[in-house]
Amino acid sequence: MALVLRKPNAYSKIDKEDPEERNRRRAQFLIYKVMEQADSMSRRRPSYLRIRIRKLKVKIGKRLTKLRKSMLLSISAAKVSVCKQVCSQFKTCRRLFGGGDNHSSANLVNTLPSPLFV
């Protein structure tokens, strides 16, 4: 009642709303809105342009997927070939600098003196 005294044109609710009634009214409103949207969607037909664009997107997506897979395959093949070349170069370098000859290291083990204490 204090609000009524402060503002001459204001009015107050005398009795409060029932929460169940408020929920029922809100549910009816939401149902009405959903039905209205469904009705407006059923009237609209998908345009020819939208169908064409959707098909084009699918086509582009398939091509991109195919391109990505082929790129990954070619990149992995390139990695393998580069690794083979690098390994062969390392083997060549080891042989040149004396670290790659297995027979000479085996002979070295055979020429070591026998242990003193057995």
Rank of each mutant, 00 (worst) to 15 (best):
43 R>N: 06
40 S>C: 04
95 R>F: 10
36 E>I: 08
68 R>P: 00
95 R>I: 05
59 K>Y: 10
38 A>C: 02
111 T>G: 14
34 V>T: 14
56 L>M: 11
64 L>N: 08
43 R>P: 05
90 F>L: 05
73 L>A: 14
76 S>E: 05
65 T>A: 15
83 C>P: 03
98 G>S: 03
95 R>A: 08
37 Q>S: 12
96 L>Y: 10
63 R>V: 09
64 L>V: 07
76 S>V: 03
72 L>R: 13
88 S>G: 03
65 T>L: 13
50 R>V: 05
111 T>K: 07
57 K>D: 11
80 V>W: 02
95 R>K: 14
54 R>V: 07
83 C>I: 07
105 S>W: 00
64 L>Y: 09
23 N>D: 15
48 Y>S: 11
73 L>Q: 12
107 N>A: 03
51 I>T: 11
25 R>T: 01
89 Q>T: 08
57 K>G: 05
35 M>E: 14
94 R>S: 02
112 L>I: 01
104 S>V: 09
83 C>H: 13
99 G>D: 01
60 I>V: 15
29 F>G: 06
77 A>C: 11
67 L>A: 15
104 S>D: 02
45 R>Q: 03
83 C>N: 14
84 K>R: 15
74 S>I: 07
91 K>F: 02
33 K>Y: 01
44 R>L: 09
33 K>C: 02
36 E>N: 04
94 R>H: 05
44 R>A: 12
110 N>I: 06
86 V>I: 04
88 S>C: 07
104 S>M: 03
45 R>C: 00
107 N>H: 01
104 S>Q: 03
84 K>W: 01
43 R>T: 11
25 R>Q: 15
23 N>Y: 06
105 S>F: 03
66 K>P: 02
69 K>G: 13
51 I>L: 05
28 Q>L: 11
32 Y>Q: 05
37 Q>D: 13
95 R>D: 14
108 L>G: 12
110 N>Q: 06
91 K>H: 00
66 K>E: 13
56 L>C: 10
40 S>V: 08
100 G>S: 00
98 G>E: 00
59 K>R: 15
81 S>D: 05
61 G>N: 14
88 S>T: 05
109 V>Y: 07
74 S>D: 08
31 I>K: 12
36 E>D: 09
39 D>I: 03
45 R>D: 02
65 T>D: 12
30 L>I: 00
109 V>E: 04
46 P>S: 12
82 V>M: 05
32 Y>A: 06
44 R>M: 06
44 R>E: 14
75 I>A: 12
74 S>T: 14
28 Q>T: 01
50 R>N: 09
65 T>S: 10
46 P>M: 09
45 R>T: 03
73 L>H: 09
61 G>F: 09
99 G>W: 00
104 S>G: 01
36 E>Q: 10
41 M>V: 07
102 N>S: 09
61 G>A: 15
59 K>N: 11
46 P>V: 09
34 V>C: 13
90 F>H: 03
72 L>Y: 02
27 A>E: 03
53 I>E: 15
